[in-house]
Design a protein around this nucleic acid. Structure first.
Lengths: 340, 340
DNA sequence: CTGAAAGCGCTTACAG
DNA sequence: CTGAAAGCGCTTACAG
């Protein structure tokens, strides 16, 4: 059926032969890397189609010294949060003609993760949150390999560009809303995982809102949420059990807000009548929750897109803004006490 | 600092030179492809570490004729559903030492998608649902390139292995539960997208349950859900508006069940008192919904894992079971009327 | 157990 | 506008 044997794909030389030109010329038409005589061009294109020729990525990479691939290192493929991020990354990478190679560290730093992905198989790396430790980042950086951090700031001694969202402002705004609009005074904060950049920033926003509105910071109102449904639920149960009074809950992410709601509900506490409940992220579903969850919208897909664009600029040797902060948006729904 | 110049990575020849051996020997220790004298081994390993040597993937691929990469073709990165699938695929691929390259067709068949990923950059392909059309599948298959289909059956003339879940049985069971345990008689079915394998199978299960329990199939009770929140909500509103009576809703997926719930709620219909509501998938959140959603658990992560394992067997030239059907599990919660 | 050498399929100066 | 040829960094018979 086809002009080539079943067990061997057409190579650039097969195309060259069929079109009666050199492989250099074929290469030029494929890559549009030089002007080619229109008639030659046509002959080559016909041969490519006839032979179903697809260039070997490996050979292109080896000879061309570029991989046409962007690497993404993530600690793990967590639930909902991951989807818009990946979508943003995938679309931007595809648009720019890059493949996407994903590596998951599974939360283990074996000083190996950065070897799976590197300049031997990618042209640049997107590093999500805590997937790489200081040493690994250092190694990557000193060799001048293009990297962009997502959802984390670079260590002081490693000047890497990073894309973050404005956690602090977002948190401050939503807490301020609870205070100013709904007259809440005893606002629980359900922390994210220890040492997470996002969680720390959100806590700072929380404290800032209290301070700027003349409310005391009460350590009793701070509890673990860990971005997890069950952990948050337990914390709320525990607060209630200890008899600590509160009229609002700010969860460091939506998932833990849902957990807080479950605990509140089972204790007979009404949201938002008795307690205002707000989260962070605006994940799929926050708007569909009952009651619809007031939260801070994180532009996660935009972060992914911008991360890719920034990385590509770096790959092209351009200067980029060091730390980009994307604005968040307050999504007022019903769980805070606003009417829908 | 390092023994090699800033702008050039160590190659196998640098390692060979430092260890005073040939590159063939270095290759052998890297790939454990032949027994090497223990002392030689040690010298080589030391050189590898000293030079931070990482083999070039491109060169390995080109010379070794394998890419150590599995490709995944998906139509798009949809919401929640995608996460456990990807997690299963990623973990199984990593375990087997394969990289994962993702390509999204963005629902466009330009007869190009199968070229982005192919034997020029992967060793095998995972093809999700409708991401490739018949012609594309045919092209892939005739060249004998290892492929495994996920969530779709192969066309009759293309004998490709596929991994599916037992949609029909799962649907039949949950509808039967509504009929037998909750005495429901007028059960709405909210279809998935047209021509989707999953949706068709689930509808068959629905019909089978009706039939086996002596209930008539009433076309008025069938409406669009499209696996989408809003579409499902609109359908329910429409049914109510038309005055069509029903005492249960079986949504073809959880997302549309949530939409159905919203429409029911706004009309003052109580779930599960007035209407039993059930879904399919058991996505993140179904258990945390109010009321907790009764649904069919799809072993999505297991599908991803098994797909990779099957693909790897094919890549190794082994025979594999042609069509694998993974069992689903009925998750009885509160939205059907069962007490929690 | 080890090395010399060919070859994988491209790209890219260089020369014309 | 086009071609001959070197080279990218590996792997793998082949020979010893």
């Amino acid at each position: 059926m086809s002009q080539i044997s079943k067990n061997r794909n057409a190579t650039i030389n097969d195309v060259a032969r069929m079109a009666s030109v050199s492989s250099a010329t074929v290469s030029r038409v494929i890559n549009r890397t030089a002007v080619v005589n229109p008639q030659t061009l046509e002959k080559v294109q016909k041969a490519i189609v006839a032979l179903h020729y697809v260039p070997s990525s490996a050979a292109q990479s080896l000879a061309g010294k570029k991989n046409n691939t962007i690497g993404l290192i993530v600690p793990g493929i967590s639930e909902v949060f991951f989807v818009p991020l990946l979508r943003g990354i995938e679309m931007a990478a595809a648009l720019a003609g890059y493949n996407l190679l994903i590596h998951t560290t599974h939360f283990q730093h074996q000083n190996q993760g950065y070897k799976t992905l590197g300049d031997h198989n990618t042209d640049g790396l997107l590093v999500f949150s805590d997937s790489l430790n200081h040493e690994e980042l250092h190694y990557l950086t000193q060799s001048n390999f293009p990297c962009v951090l997502i959802y984390q700031n670079p260590p002081d001694d490693i000047p890497l560009p990073s894309i973050n969202i404005d956690n602090k402002n977002g948190a401050r705004q939503i807490v301020e809303h609870l205070i100013q609009v709904h007259q809440r005074r005893n606002i629980v904060f359900l922390r994210g995982p220890q040492n997470t950049h996002d969680s720390i920033q959100r806590e700072q926003g929380y404290r800032q809102a209290l301070q700027q509105n003349g409310l005391p910071y009460d350590e009793q109102l701070i509890a673990r949420g860990d971005f997890l449904f069950e952990v948050a639920a337990d914390s709320i149960r525990n607060l209630i059990h200890k008899g600590i009074e509160f009229d609002a809950v700010f969860s460091a992410d939506d998932g833990s807000a849902f957990g807080a709601f479950a605990a509140l509900k089972e204790t007979g506490v009404c949201v938002p009548e008795d307690v205002s409940l707000v989260g962070f992220d605006d994940v799929y579903f926050a708007a569909h929750f009952s009651p619809p969850l007031t939260t801070v919208q994180a532009p996660t897909e935009a972060v992914g897109k911008l991360a890719v664009e920034t990385l590509i600029q770096r790959m092209n040797g351009k200067e980029v803004q060091q730390n980009i902060l994307l604005p968040t948006r307050l999504m007022l729904r019903h769980s805070c006490g606003c009417k829908q």
